[in-house]
């Protein structure tokens, strides 16, 4: 299990190779790489700056990674999230999970990225040549994507 919050870019191939190196119980590695797009809501985006809450970010990412490891039988997992100013095409985030079988790897990878979108303390500021700077608004579709991973025990608590 590992979490990194960094300004620097990462090499997905290298990261995936290191994740499974030497562990032959791993039968599958799933990964998600998030990239900066050059368009958002129909408007052109020339750059994006990611701000985060140092300390809380690392703590929350480690907690959610631990939860993924409790819910799925993972052999290894990695979250790398960048901050700072990024250009279209730049990598933002890497989530990778490794397990004996594909279902655990694929499901836990999706769980982690859905969760990251709404619960990790990052904020995106988009720059556009035509309309200046704009803070990205949270999306209800992201909230719904994260909510479907709630376990029944969480729902029970919410109902109380």
């Amino acid at each position: 299990m590992a979490v990194r919050v960094q300004r620097e870019d990462f090499d997905p191939g290298n990261e995936l190779e290191r994740l499974s190196a030497g562990n032959h119980d791993i039968g599958g590695v799933a990964s998600f790489v998030g990239l900066v797009r050059d368009v958002a809501g129909g408007e052109e985006v020339s750059a994006m700056t990611l701000e985060h809450y140092p300390g809380m970010t690392e703590k929350l990412l480690a907690e959610i990674e631990a939860e993924a490891n409790e819910r799925w039988p993972l052999e290894a997992s990695l979250i790398v999230h960048r901050y700072g100013r990024l250009a279209p095409g730049d990598r933002i985030v890497l989530v990778a999970t490794a397990s004996a079988h594909r279902h655990a790897a694929l499901e836990s990878c999706q769980f982690l990225i859905d969760w990251l979108k709404t619960k990790a303390p990052f904020w995106k500021l988009e720059e556009s040549g035509s309309s200046g700077e704009k803070w990205v608004a949270a999306r209800a579709t992201d909230d719904r994507a994260a909510a479907r991973w709630k376990q029944s025990s969480d729902k029970d608590e919410a109902a109380e």
Binding site: H52, Y53, K117, D142
Partner: peptide, 10 residues
């Protein structure tokens, strides 16, 4: 105490 808008990571 930290005060911020809804998160938009990922």
């Amino acid at each position: 105490v930290a005060i911020f808008p809804p998160m938009t990571g990922g």
